[in-house]
């Protein structure tokens, strides 16, 4: 663990940061009852994935044959995240109108 801190920056560092971001995002989604908090968690998870793509696609860390595929997918994910945020905000808005709150625990219509 401490070896990493003393080593020059490699792919592993990126992956560690990405895993940390993913975990934080997931925990944020789980723990936050505020819908906006959940959205923030989602953005964190998406960005951790983006970081992975960039890292794997970077020619500096390893001899890659994939060209700029990683960067392209990262761009797609950013666009996707933007549109997802728009839809999710609309859902949140609608949710608010219905329940007068954005506490996701209040919406339990899917309960079996």
């Amino acid at each position: 663990m401490f070896d990493l801190l003393s080593q020059p920056v490699t792919l592993t560092h990126y992956l560690c940061i990405s895993a940390f971001l993913f975990t934080v995002g997931l925990l944020c989604m789980i723990t936050k009852r505020n819908a906006i908090g959940v959205l923030i968690g989602i953005e964190l998870v998406l960005n951790s994935a983006n970081l992975n793509f960039i890292a794997f696609g970077s020619p500096y860390f390893q001899q890659s044959t994939s060209g700029i595929d990683g960067q392209l997918i990262a761009l797609f994910v950013i666009v996707l995240a933007a549109s997802e945020a728009a839809v999710a905000l609309a859902i949140t808005f609608h949710f608010y109108q219905k329940y007068q709150t954005i506490d996701v625990d209040q919406g339990q219509d899917l309960k079996g």
Partner: peptide
């Protein structure tokens, strides 16, 4: 199986 369907997102 019904008990797993809590309806809660979290």
């Amino acid at each position: 199986l019904r008990y797993f369907q809590t309806g809660s997102l979290r």
